[in-house]
Computed example of a mutant assay.
Amino acid sequence: MAHLVLLGIVYISFISLGLPDGILGVAWPAIRADMGQPLAAVGMITITMTVCSATSSFFAGAIVKRIGTGAVVATSCLMTALALVGFSYAPSFLWLVALGVPLGLGAGAVDASLNHFVAAHYSSRHMNWLHGFWGVGATTGPLIMGLALASRGGWESGARAIGFVQLTLAVVLWLTLSLWSQEHSKPPAEEGEHGKPTTFKPLRTRALWLAPLCFLLYVAAEMGTGLWAASILVGSRGMSPVNAGLWVSVYFGSITAGRFGVGLVANRLGNRRLIRLGIAVATVGALVFASHSLLGTASLAGLVLMGLGCAPVFPSMMHETVRRFPDDVARTVIGRQMTFAYIGGSVVPAAFGLLATWAGLAAVMPVVVVVLITMLALTATLDRLT
């Protein structure tokens, strides 16, 4: 029973990780209007958060050894909660940038420690579902922010509401710390998992860097779309901020639904097939969303397609790493993958902002299509090398 309760706590923790991820893109049109900032200024916040997330992820293993996974997750959730509440009272843009520090530190620590914990104690099916619960948070966050934008409280009330949700989750985590110390068993590997002996091809140096580069491109496409979709819908297609927020929620909701579905069939289809299929569907979705001038409102279906395509890619790529490389090499590659993922989630979307300033918001999605096509080609190369 304690095993199942702890699994529920782990899922709740990843919901808390996902809650803030989609709200900045939804709130940014209103924030920059209130604070008189240019379109690309959001990059200062995202880069700050990314540097802090990468730093806390790098040191998370050492910290977990000292105080335990439960304490790290509970403390990190509290940090993000206080940062979000602080967002709602920030008197200037520089305060938003500064609050990105605790928000990034908390998110990075939860991400690294929980991914390691689930990989060590649960099956690959639960790894896919873990990222599905991240999607629950990433879907709920923009929905809350969209409703707040429609109210008198504005984006401030949205950040405050999500901060209070995080505070509630932090209390739950602190009250259940004893459960983490009781989890010592590791379920047997399921059919199709890496518990069975694997024959590796001779290592190629290119493969050691191609795998992380694929993570950079994937996260750039997924998070870049999540960050700029609302601005595209409001700024170049005339949609209201409330409706734009709802469509961003639909996008993240599609990722969530897809990941729960993938968890049921992942062992049967295999990681590599899921990765290729997911990238292909996401590419079609991005192309449809970019084709507003041809398809009109039907182009919104592209966000659903792209979300469904994105669903299996990140968990499957992470799980496939231990199949591509021997264990000692895989640990190094996974570290590189997380670092490159954070770069892809911050620097590239920030560059999209510069692109939008120079060429217009309509230029963002065609670039996302190019990123996904490039990733598909690199993935095929990586499959041949490993």
Rank of each mutant, 00 (worst) to 15 (best):
G285W: 02
G36C: 09
A266I: 02
A351C: 15
I9A: 14
P241M: 12
H121M: 07
Y218D: 04
A359W: 10
Y251L: 10
L378I: 06
L6E: 01
L378F: 13
S316F: 08
F14G: 00
W228Y: 09
P142L: 14
R160I: 03
G70V: 03
V313R: 06
V371L: 13
V165R: 05
G132P: 05
S299T: 02
D328H: 12
L6S: 01
V265I: 04
S124A: 15
A60Q: 09
W134A: 05
G335C: 03
V85Y: 13
H292L: 02
I23C: 08
V219Q: 05
G253M: 12
S56Q: 08
A112S: 12
V364L: 13
A363T: 05
L308C: 06
L7C: 07
C52Q: 07
S293Y: 11
L167M: 10
R336T: 01
T321L: 13
A356N: 07
S76V: 14
A298P: 12
K196Q: 05
T357E: 15
S249G: 13
A286M: 14
P187F: 13
T357L: 15
T48C: 08
I343C: 09
R273S: 11
R324W: 03
F133D: 02
I23H: 11
E222P: 02
T297H: 12
G258P: 06
V73S: 03
V51Y: 14
G163W: 09
T283S: 07
F289S: 08
P197M: 00
D111T: 02
